[in-house]
Amino acid sequence: MFGITYFVVLKFKHIFVTMEKQVILNAQQIELTIKRLCHELIESHDDFSNSVIIGLQPRGIQVVARLKSELESILGHTILCGNLDITFFRDDFRRTEKQRIPSVTNLDFSIENKKVVLVDDVLYTGRTIRAGLDALLTFGRPSKVELLVLIDRRFSRDLPIQADYYGKTVDTLKMERVSVDWKDLEGIDQVLLYTKEGNE
């Protein structure tokens, strides 16, 4: 217990609150979820000949990488995928202390008249997705935009935005935190829920 608490305090030392963590999805469950999401995508996008997948920076692109490799192994051909940074479209410019450093946007194909699947790891307030939609439309006019998220934090939206595909829905409080870890970045595939200690 001390070990876990110590690790969490280290990771979120800026919060200065001891938090408890709980695994929502483990590596095997993430793999199953990605597989299911891919089959749901194929149901509505057929062979992806007119569809593209775009991950929101910084954490959505990991989900895209998993979807891409799974979809390509099912369909047997490559799928157009890109990254989109939304920093300049956020609604909190000059409202946060810390300057946000943009990540790379990489869309080397046209989205005009394409069906776009926007992808992020966690859907929380919906503000990132709102900014993502604005950023996306500066590249053209897609025929349709859908949203896929790995985790949907239900009942915590600031804006009327819902996902079309989601891996898992969780009920969380504002003070809680969901973090998606990836093998390539954090060394392990898992989704964690951090709860304030003593919180029921």
Binding site: F88, F89, F93, V104, T105, D134, L137, T138, F139, G140
Partner: peptide
């Protein structure tokens, strides 16, 4: 990268 997009504008300011 932004000024090479079809719409070369961001709403930040």
């Amino acid at each position: 990268e932004v000024i090479n997009r079809p719409i070369k504008k961001v709403p930040s300011l």
